[in-house]
Computed example of a mutant assay.
Amino acid sequence: MIKKLFGEINMTWKKVIIYAIAAGVYTALMAILVPDWCSFHDIAVTEEGWILLALVVITNCEKPLEAALKTFVFFLISQPLVYLIQVPFSDMGWGLFGYYRYWFMITLLTFPGAFIAWYIKKDNILSGIILSVALVLLCLQGVGYLKSALSEFPHHLLSTVYCIGIIPVFIFIILKNKKAKILSCIISAAALAVILVYTFALSTSYIMAGNVLLDDIGNIQLDEGCEVEVSDEAVSKAWIEEDYQGDYQLMMEFYKYDTNTVTITDANGNETVIEIYLDEDKNYRVSKK
Rank of each mutant, 00 (worst) to 15 (best):
L150Y: 13
K256L: 14
A180W: 03
L140N: 13
T261E: 15
T59W: 05
E275A: 02
V16K: 02
Y284A: 01
W103Q: 11
G7E: 03
L138Q: 05
K3P: 10
Y102K: 11
W50G: 00
Y145A: 10
Q245E: 15
I276N: 11
F170W: 08
F254I: 02
W37H: 08
I32N: 08
L53N: 10
G95E: 15
A209P: 00
K178Q: 15
V212P: 07
L250G: 06
F89D: 09
Y102N: 11
A234H: 10
G24W: 06
E152S: 08
G7L: 01
A190W: 04
G210D: 12
L140P: 01
S39E: 13
V143L: 05
L214K: 04
C226P: 09
E66L: 08
P168G: 03
V87Q: 04
S159K: 00
I43E: 06
P64T: 08
S127V: 06
L222E: 08
L222S: 04
L29C: 14
S151M: 12
V133L: 08
I173V: 15
D215N: 10
S39V: 10
I240V: 12
E227V: 09
F89R: 06
N10T: 11
N10Q: 13
A44C: 11
D215A: 07
T27Q: 04
Y206F: 13
G95V: 06
S205V: 15
D91T: 13
C139P: 05
S205E: 14
L69Q: 11
